[in-house]
């Protein structure tokens, strides 16, 4: 048996993250088949959203005849205006992904501190006030809230306090704000569970400022909240598509998955099956992927995986 002695200097230089990664891989093992499928779907969607637009033709330009079926020239065929459907779907996917990611990020950035502070001061007027306000926002379903505001401000860019908000920014803002109560609740519930842990008291006794104590709590609150957030990306993508479908989202000619589906609905009966089916499939699979992976993440955290 050959034994390799690793000099101390080198083993000491092995970054902690690598050993953590290795131990994580060891613990997690192979993902469940459904989770693996979810990961595959997400990778596919991400490639479609981020890589395909680099190679695809201009999604707004007419590059073929109207309603060409899939071919080597147009892998997903063309739409009713002769535009490459793959390019349009990819561009729509990119927008959906961006809106999904940023709206959830915005919701989390606003909601987590709010929920944590409310929980940390559970029972106080502050907790009461925060929760009442959030309940009010939550009373309006995500979608209705967004539709209401877009109905008021129009589908173009709006300017608020001298800042011009593009339509996609508006969609991100609206979805993010409407997610806020849900995220704040999760953060609050997690924090409530966490503040009963002895380390919170111990850190207070150690004289750590409240900010630092909350910071320590955050590292435990965040993983389940992030897993939830991951699931909500699916909801955000769906909501963005639905807004686009209702022509209340980002406006044409910018392609959106919802807009493509709305237009394609008119061509279902004229044998242009690819027009609605392929982009619809992309949307459904993306949403499914986020759900599968989000569920798996949640399960893992529920099982108390601490790494």
């Amino acid at each position: 048996m050959t034994s390799v002695t690793v000099p101390d200097r080198i083993s000491g230089a092995t970054p902690a993250w690598r050993s953590r990664l290795r131990s994580w891989a060891r613990k997690t093992g192979r993902p469940a088949p459904l989770t693996a499928a979810g990961i595959a779907l997400l990778v596919g969607f991400t490639v479609l959203a981020l890589v395909v637009p680099l190679f695809a033709p201009d999604p707004r330009a007419t590059t073929g005849l109207p309603l060409e079926s899939p071919s080597a020239g147009h892998f997903m065929g063309t739409d009713h205006l002769g535009r490459d459907l793959l390019a349009r779907t990819a561009a729509g996917a990119r927008l959906s992904l961006a809106v999904g990611f940023f709206s959830v990020l915005l919701g989390l950035v606003l909601a987590v501190p709010l929920g944590m502070v409310a929980a940390y001061r559970a029972g106080s007027w502050l907790d009461d006030a925060v929760m009442r306000v959030l309940e009010t926002v939550q009373a309006l379903p995500v979608f209705v809230f967004a539709m209401f505001v877009i109905g008021l401000t129009g589908t173009g860019s709006s300017s608020v306090a001298g800042i011009t908000l593009s339509m996609s920014t508006k969609v991100v803002l609206l979805l993010g704000i409407s997610f806020l109560p849900y995220f704040a609740r999760v953060a609050r519930a997690q924090t409530l569970a966490e503040v009963h842990e002895d380390y919170v008291g111990a850190l207070r006794v150690l004289g750590l400022p409240r900010r630092r104590v909350l910071g320590e709590v955050l590292v435990n609150v965040l993983p389940p909240v992030l897993a939830q957030g991951f699931l909500w990306i699916a909801i955000a993508i769906f909501a963005e598509s639905a807004l686009g479908f209702l022509a209340l989202g980002v406006q044409p000619p910018t392609p959106t998955l919802g807009g493509i589906l709305a237009d394609s609905g008119n061509y279902v009966l004229v044998d242009a099956w690819w027009y609605s089916v392929l982009p619809g499939l992309v949307l459904v699979l993306a949403v499914t992927g986020f759900n599968l992976v989000g569920d798996a993440l949640n399960d893992r955290i529920d099982r108390g995986g601490s790494q």
Partner: peptide, 9 residues
């Protein structure tokens, strides 16, 4: 129709 689109897809 969105629902229909999804089920179609």
């Amino acid at each position: 129709r969105l629902g229909a689109g999804a089920s179609l897809a």
